[in-house]
């Protein structure tokens, strides 16, 4: 089977690799790059545990071929904030108890990054619809909504103060 050389930026670093046509992006990230913060929960693009940012947009990496990410800039949860710091969403999930087991959390946060980029001041309903492709079995979502609300406020404050 054909091998393809792909080059992409992952969390700001350039990565090159030779991959099979059928390698799924999520496996490339987890197994080739050892970035295990991106999770697999359903295989059918329903649960969103594998959500990453590809060129700034949230996508489900279990339903995306690694070879198609050639030339892309990818952000995984490991690269969302500088080592030892929190992105406002990470801080908000901590402050608002927006996570229990943590398995959906990376995908939930990365999806929320994209949500807030397109809608910096979402209503509760818009947040709920905006994260509807990411399942959480632990939190009942109330505190995830509150986390996104806190982060929205914080990010707006930050952008105003710039």
């Amino acid at each position: 089977m054909a091998k393809h050389t792909i080059t992409m930026t992952i969390n700001g670093e350039s990565v090159s690799a030779e991959v099979d046509s059928r390698l799924l992006l999520v496996h490339f990230i987890r197994e080739n790059l050892d970035l295990t913060g991106t999770h697999i929960g359903c295989d059918t693009s329903n649960c969103g545990a594998c959500t990453i940012l590809l060129d700034g947009k949230s996508i489900k990496s279990c339903t995306y071929l690694a070879v198609r990410a050639d030339g892309a800039a990818i952000t995984t949860i490991e690269g969302l904030a500088a080592e030892g710091t929190n992105h406002p969403l990470q801080q908000a999930f901590h402050d608002q108890h927006g996570l229990h087991c943590g398995f959906c959390t990376p995908g939930m946060i990365l999806r929320s990054v994209d949500l807030l980029k397109n809608n910096p001041n979402p209503t509760e309903e818009e947040i709920r619809w905006g994260i509807s492709g990411n399942l959480c079995r632990c939190t009942g979502y109330n505190n995830i909504v509150k986390s996104v609300q806190q982060a929205a406020k914080e990010m707006q404050n930050q952008s105003e103060s710039v």
Binding site: I59, D114, L115, S132
Partner: peptide
């Protein structure tokens, strides 16, 4: 579109 799949799927 609002009712199709979810935002991450719609991104692709």
């Amino acid at each position: 579109i609002w009712l199709t799949a979810d935002p991450s799927v719609r991104n692709v």
